[in-house]
Each structure stands twice: as structure tokens, then as C-alpha cells.
């Protein structure tokens, strides 16, 4: 484990904490995409199936459980919490799951390193994670008055991806035979998805204005 990887994971964790705190403190999930959260739940479930078969480290196991637990908590709040669910922007969060899930599933059936259930689901989770933020970005574009915390949540998620790329470069340079092309390409695609958001986020921060994305 190198510093970039640790910082990446901590940024990812922080992004989820920011989202949990925002929803819990304001009793509102305004501007948060349930579709993105549910896609992340699918990503984590498919990827962390090895929780039961392959022990890597205590760190790894604890982080996986936290990611699963926090994502399901957010989904539960948004769907069932008496006060919070009323604040969900149902009519604006209209991105269709199948546009992302079906292509990723097909791609994982074709492009994988081993044709087994575990490996295909794991690969599917890698592809799906790359595009899972799209419903959130679309919702953000539609919502005026994006609150700072939602903007920070997305900024932290994008930063986590950028740090993972640095982690891969570091590992490539220091570990013999370290290669994972599918993961690298998906990760680069995932980071590119955030570039537009980063541009507007940094611009609004420099100009001391509220974040808004052009339609």
C-alpha cells in the first residue's frame, strides 16, 4: 500500500462521510441522486463478493464493510426515512439504470480476464463504477442552487479517482509485472467523466460563487 492509494481510499471514505452528514444534519437529500447511490450499491455488492472467499487484510475487509453499509444506509434513508424521503428530487432524477447496466454487463461478458461468475461480476463492477456518477451529474445540472456539500461530495469522489491513477503509476514503477489494463482504462474513463465538473467546481470556488453547471 502506497501513500496515493491510502489518500485515495481516505478521500473516498471522506466523500461518503460528507454525504451521510449532509443528509443526516439537514434531514434532506435534495440534489442527491438515488440512482447513483443504487448503482454504487450494485458496484460494491458485485466487487466485494470476495469478502467471503478471499481475505486480503483487516484494512481491506473493514473498508469494504464500511462502503457497503454506508451506501445501503443512504439508500434506506432516501427510500424509506419518513422525513428524508420527501426531499428526494424524484422527478429530476430520471436517468435510466438500464442504459448503464446493460452495456457494462455485456462488456464484462466479452472483456474479462477469466470467464467465471466471480470474475465477470468483478469486471462488471469495474465498468459500472466508471459511469455510476452520471445520474448524479445529470441531476446536478438540473438542480439550481447546488448546496456546497453535494458539490464537495462529487469533488471528493473525483479526487479519489485521480489519486488512484497516481497509485497505479507508482505501483507500475515499483512492482515488477504489475499490470491491470481493464482496471486502468476504466479508471481513466471514470476520471475523465469528472473533468467538466472539476472545471466548474474550481471556477466557482475561485470566483467565490455558488456552484452551478450550465445546462
Amino acid at each position: 500500500m502506497n501513500l496515493f492509494r491510502l489518500l485515495g481510499d481516505m478521500t473516498h471514505l471522506l466523500s461518503i462521510i460528507v454525504l451521510l452528514l449532509k443528509i443526516n444534519a439537514t434531514r434532506s437529500c435534495r440534489g442527491v441522486s438515488l440512482k447513483t447511490q443504487e448503482l454504487y450499491a450494485i458496484v460494491f455488492v458485485c466487487r466485494y463478493l470476495d469478502l467471503f472467499t478471499n481475505f486480503i487484510s483487516l484494512y481491506n475487509t473493514v473498508m469494504k464493510v464500511i462502503f457497503l453499509g454506508s451506501t445501503f444506509t443512504i439508500i434506506y434513508w432516501m427510500r424509506f426515512h419518513k422525513v428524508i424521503r420527501v426531499t428526494y428530487d424524484r422527478d429530476q432524477d430520471t436517468f435510466r439504470y438500464q442504459f448503464l447496466i446493460i452495456p457494462c454487463l455485456l462488456l464484462s461478458l466479452i472483456l474479462n480476464s477469466e470467464f467465471t461468475v466471480m470474475e465477470v461480476l468483478w469486471t462488471f463492477s469495474i465498468y459500472l463504477e466508471a459511469v455510476a456518477i452520471l445520474p448524479q451529474l445529470v441531476l446536478l445540472q438540473r438542480t439550481n442552487n447546488i448546496d456546497n456539500l453535494t458539490g464537495n461530495y462529487i469533488f471528493l469522489l473525483g479526487s479519489y479517482r485521480a489519486l488512484y491513477i497516481l497509485n497505479w503509476i507508482y505501483r507500475f514503477l515499483t512492482e515488477p509485472n504489475y499490470r491491470q489494463y481493464l482496471v486502468w482504462i476504466s479508471g481513466i474513463v471514470q476520471t475523465i467523466v469528472y473533468i467538466d465538473f472539476f472545471y466548474y467546481y474550481i471556477r466557482s470556488w475561485k470566483n467565490n460563487e455558488k456552484l452551478s453547471l450550465p445546462a
Binding site: 478471499n54 504489475y178 482496471v183
Partner: peptide
């Protein structure tokens, strides 16, 4: 192996 190694990332 390689497959197990990949999965040390979250």
C-alpha cells in the same frame, strides 16, 4: 497470481 493481486484494491 495476477487476479488475486488486482483485488487488493477497493
Amino acid at each position: 497470481g495476477m487476479a488475486a493481486k488486482q483485488k487488493d484494491e477497493l
